[in-house]
Amino acid sequence: MIVLDHIDINQGAFSVRNVCMNIPQNAYAVLMGSTGSGKTTLLEIICGLRQPDCGRVLLNECDVTHATPAARDVGYVPQDGALFKTMTVFEQLAFSLVVRREHHSAIETRVSELAGLLDIEHILDRTPAGLSGGERQRVALGRALSFRPGILLLDEPLTALDDETRSQIMHLLKQVQQHTGVTVLHVTHNRSEAEQLGTMMLCISNGCVQALTQDKKEESYV
């Protein structure tokens, strides 16, 4: 469950005012908005990389407004994947578990499970330099899911992909959400992506977030 309670943020010319948002448990929410409307800023506020000027962030009914990103139990996939250049795919998937000092066998089991789910067993010993766009997104997704977070934030994960890979990753995202039951907030400005994936639609414009009802959805997509 993701709740933003009257969030304000002001960054020079850019500002978001009085944002309220409520995404229920296990929902696949899609947040749409034009470039520069503040979508990424909201994701950063939720995962703790940016502090709001005022307001509260509640994740699974806990107030995490002042918690560090590490303490929030949120998986984050940034726009370009931001894979660690010096690590192999195996090390990327194992990273959060190594930080949590999990047992070696538990790490191997989890990496193997994720690699199977995301169909990346064959690239586990490769570094990001040799990966395709689709493979990079799969690895970034696996890395974000590795510690079994309750919430997954996706920042335009399909933007740089070709049509075929995009459709594969969209299918994968649906499958992952059904398999793990994670609450997803997916940021995009692509309408078809939102329609195919989202169980809940949100739109940000002029610094305000509003939920789109089915009628509004149809209206806004005309």
């Binding site: 990389l49 560090t68 990103p69 590490a70 929030r72 931001a82 250049k85 959060s96 949590r100 510690f147």
Partner: peptide, 27 residues
């Protein structure tokens, strides 16, 4: 080096020091 990588490392459970030592310094 991409600062975003260190931020992702923090969401994965790292402190700033760990993100620096495990991700930014190797890069």
């Amino acid at each position: 080096t991409d600062e975003r990588c260190a931020q992702v490392a923090q969401t994965l459970g790292c402190s700033r020091r760990q993100a620096f030592l495990m991700v930014e310094l190797p890069e």
